[in-house]
Structures are given as C-alpha cells and as structure tokens.
Amino acid sequence: MYKELSSGVKISITRSISTSFEAYLASIGWEEDRFSMEDFMKFWQSYFTENAAWYEKIPQDLLINPEFHEEIAQKIDEVIEKILNEEPTEKQIETIEDLQKQLGTNYTYSCKAEAAYIEQLLKNQLNQ
C-alpha cells in the first residue's frame, strides 16, 4: 500500500516524520528519559494534519487501513533510526566545541540532528 504511493507523497511523508521527530525532541530538550513514542505520535499526527499536503492526497479508506498503519509504523522506525545514527559533521563538532569553550558548558550529543539542536541552543545562550 505504502509502496504504491507516488514518490512525491512518500518523500513528503518521510519529511513530515523527520521534521516532526526533530521538533518533538527539541520540545523535550533531547532528554531520552522524557521521550514517549505515544507523545511523538500525537505530535506527528498534529503536524501532518495541520501542515502536510500529503495527508489530503491519500484516500480516506487507505488512511484507515490497518496494513497501511503497519507500513507507516515501519517507515517511522526507519526514519528515526536514520536520524539517530547520522553522525554529526566535523563543522558541527568544531562549532559546538568552540561555543562550549566560550560558555563553559559541557553538552553531549550523539547524532547530527541533536548536534544541530545543541549548536542552536549554545548560539542562543551566547546571544543572551
């Protein structure tokens, strides 16, 4: 079912998952102990119903089909795994190290998306 969607719709679904996942993690400060898959799913559902064009392009009977839900759940797992396993860039690492020296902080991060969050957090602290 998911595989039968146009490539544009699949790309849009993937983008909505990654965008909302990163936004959800930012909303909880990337604190693992605060993560709830149920809360993330609510966050994502709110995101795609309000912001994603792909939602209106999928027939209602497909949206309520349990098999489609299983395929989407698998896609969510794949996107999350990819985000969490993407290494921070050298530039991110250098920038964060420099900012932490200036601010006297010691934040840790394990992936590119979390590094982007930490970098922005540090830049905001520096500008205050």
Rank of each mutant, 00 (worst) to 15 (best):
Tyr2Val: 05
Lys3Asn: 08
Lys3Trp: 13
Ser6His: 10
Ser7Asp: 15
Gly8Phe: 08
Val9Gly: 13
Ile11Tyr: 14
Ile13Trp: 15
Thr14Leu: 10
Ile17Thr: 10
Ile17Cys: 08
Ile17Ser: 01
Thr19Tyr: 15
Thr19Ile: 15
Ser20Tyr: 15
Glu22Lys: 15
Ala23Arg: 14
Tyr24Lys: 01
Leu25Arg: 05
Leu25Ile: 04
Ala26Ile: 09
Ser27Asn: 12
Ile28Glu: 03
Gly29Gln: 12
Glu32Cys: 07
Phe35Asp: 03
Ser36Ala: 12
Ser36Gly: 09
Phe40Asn: 01
Lys42Leu: 00
Lys42Met: 07
Phe43Val: 00
Gln45Glu: 02
Ser46Tyr: 10
Tyr47Met: 02
Glu50Ser: 13
Glu50Thr: 04
Asn51Ala: 08
Ala52His: 10
Ala52Ser: 02
Glu56Lys: 03
Lys57Ser: 01
Gln60Thr: 11
Gln60Cys: 09
Gln60Asn: 11
Leu63Ala: 03
Pro66Ile: 02
Glu70Arg: 01
Glu71Cys: 02
Ile72Asn: 02
Gln74Ile: 05
Glu78Leu: 13
Glu78Met: 08
Ile83Val: 08
Ile83Gly: 07
Glu86Ser: 09
Glu87Met: 05
Pro88Gly: 05
Gln92Pro: 08
Glu94His: 08
Ile96His: 01
Leu99Gln: 05
Leu99Tyr: 00
Gln100Met: 14
Lys101Ala: 14
Lys101Asn: 12
Leu103Arg: 11
Thr105Ser: 01
Asn106Ile: 13
Thr108Arg: 13
Tyr109Leu: 11
Ala113Trp: 07
Ala113Ser: 12
Ala115Lys: 01
Tyr117Phe: 11
Ile118Cys: 09
Ile118Phe: 15
Gln120Asn: 12
Leu121Trp: 03
Leu122Gln: 03
Asn124Arg: 13
